[in-house]
Design a protein around this nucleic acid. Structure first.
Lengths: 181, 181
DNA sequence: GTCTATATAGCGATAGAC
DNA sequence: GTCTATCGCTATATAGAC
């Protein structure tokens, strides 16, 4: 676990990139192997099947979410502001794993849908002490879901962001914080 | 246009159902034909290709959104309340077309992603006169997006809704209306 | 650990009978 | 307008050399 083979990580990154940029359909073993710079046989040495590849993405997601929950719990700006600010696309490791998992979920992978629901439940649990009541919690969760939904749509083709950024986002966060606390 | 062939509609409905319940991967011509109760040849008489099938879903979506915009414009409860109330899954024709289009978008179909962005822009235009400012508009749009995102996730497998319903939804709508108007 | 070559199956689409 | 039969391609996965 301490030093995973480099080729294995490269393959997983390539799979994730393909899922994000081209969708599940295009993320074939051939295409992933090509992007990762290995042969199909080489790929299948590290991941025995396509399902194995998907499972690895979901494990990566779980690990990144655990770190995120930890950071959110101790964020100086407060949990709500941290959560909303990090819900816009920054193309970091967690964003990418989330979008990849969403692609898998929508392609019909049941474990991916369950993983995403579990992640959402963890976030809700962490946010609950920081908001006034359940209605306020729903409001914050849904706005974050909305930001992710747009990230997911815009990552499909190379479209520019349709959601607020920078100044507009700061105003939105301010409005939400006034509403929920 | 006045009386489209019944078999054609059955095929389109079957395709939509497969997309929603099993994802784009599983919505093969064989599977769709089987659900619709026709042969693959029969299917391909009505829709020349799989792309043609996807395009028909997007045309259906456009027509249903046009009706929805019309209803929203004259809703007695107000545009914001109408919009939020109809953003939770009711399994009506519009919900189904939206989820199907979202599956196509995430499978890498570029026209689907563009269609969904266009729909979102139409909704924003209709809501704008009903809210205080752009930040408020963003808040309403994102909560609706969040509700759809959860619909989409929960439709993949047979999971129960994770978003507010009935009383909790009414409270959320009330909170949002206080915030944006 | 990575490669090439190949088996096997499923998919989209065509052809032609009825 | 709907069917059966079939073609050609591509995808996943295996076998075995290096």
């Amino acid at each position: 676990m301490a030093r995973p083979p480099l080729a294995r990580e490269r393959v997983l990154d390539a799979y994730e990139s393909m899922l994000i940029a081209e969708g599940e359909r295009a993320a074939t073993l051939d295409a992933v192997a090509r992007i990762a710079g290995v042969s199909k046989g080489g790929l299948l040495y590290h991941f025995a099947s396509k399902d194995d590849l998907a499972a690895a993405i979901l494990r990566r997601l779980d690990a990144l979410v655990e770190e995120d929950i930890e950071r959110m719990s101790h964020a100086a700006e407060g949990r709500v502001a941290y959560y909303m600010r990090t819900s816009v696309m920054e193309d970091d490791a967690l964003d990418r794993a989330l979008i990849a998992a969403s692609r898998l979920a929508q392609a019909g992978h049941p474990d991916a849908a369950e993983a995403l629901r579990r992640v959402r439940a963890q976030w809700a649990e962490t946010l609950r002490p920081a908001v006034r009541d359940e209605t306020a919690l729903q409001l914050v969760m849904l706005i974050s879901d909305g930001l992710y939904y747009n990230n997911i749509l815009d990552s499909a083709d190379g479209a520019g962001p349709t959601t607020p950024k920078d100044g507009a986002l700061a105003e939105l966060i301010e409005l939400v914080e006034r509403t929920v606390s």
